[in-house]
């Protein structure tokens, strides 16, 4: 795949920034508005898919190679697990205990602010990273027909 014409390339290089920003917005405001980690992650991945369609697969692989994306995928999942595990060491000592909310933000005034809801925005960030990277990986791997790439993706 060499990519499409110059018109498509120019427009998509503009639009990709907007899509990426929108994805980040959806993730960061996940606890206040509809959306969150999964939806935002899908949007992040879709900006890369747009690039892949416009510029060809090789261009995208130069920017975000398979091993790096796979590392990001794992880091997202590990962050999520770590946030859940931290709950075990604070106060109520319970898995998934929302320790930030309970210990530092136990104040009704903070509702509907960006920094509120304790660990939920952090989990959203981790999930967004995980979903974005893994969807990107799935699409990249499915678009290659080389027989030596192992095609085993989960979630």
């Amino acid at each position: 795949m060499k990519g499409m014409t110059i018109i498509v390339k120019t427009i998509s290089s503009w639009v990709k920034v907007l899509i990426f920003m929108f994805g980040i917005y959806i993730i960061i405001f996940g606890h206040l508005t509809p959306g969150g980690g999964f939806a935002g992650g899908v949007i992040l991945a879709s900006s890369y898919v747009l690039l892949m369609l416009a510029f060809g697969r090789e261009f995208v692989e130069e920017n975000l190679s398979l091993p790096v994306a796979s590392k990001l995928d794992c880091v997202g999942a590990l962050l999520f697990a770590a946030i859940a595990m931290f709950g075990l060491f604070y106060g109520a000592a319970c898995f998934f205990w929302n320790f930030i909310q309970a210990e530092y933000l136990a104040d009704k005034e903070t509702a509907f602010r960006l920094i509120s809801a304790g660990t939920i925005p952090l989990s959203n960030l981790a999930i967004g990273l995980k979903v974005g990277a893994s969807l990107f990986l799935i699409i990249l791997v499915l678009s290659t027909f080389r027989p030596d790439v192992s095609v085993k993706e989960k979630e």
Partner: peptide, 19 residues
């Protein structure tokens, strides 16, 4: 043993391994 550990340990290790 906190029960979620039975689920969390294998899942976390599973994502730690590819690193």
């Amino acid at each position: 043993v906190p029960l979620p550990i039975f689920v969390a340990v294998p899942l976390a290790t599973a994502f730690l391994l590819p690193v």
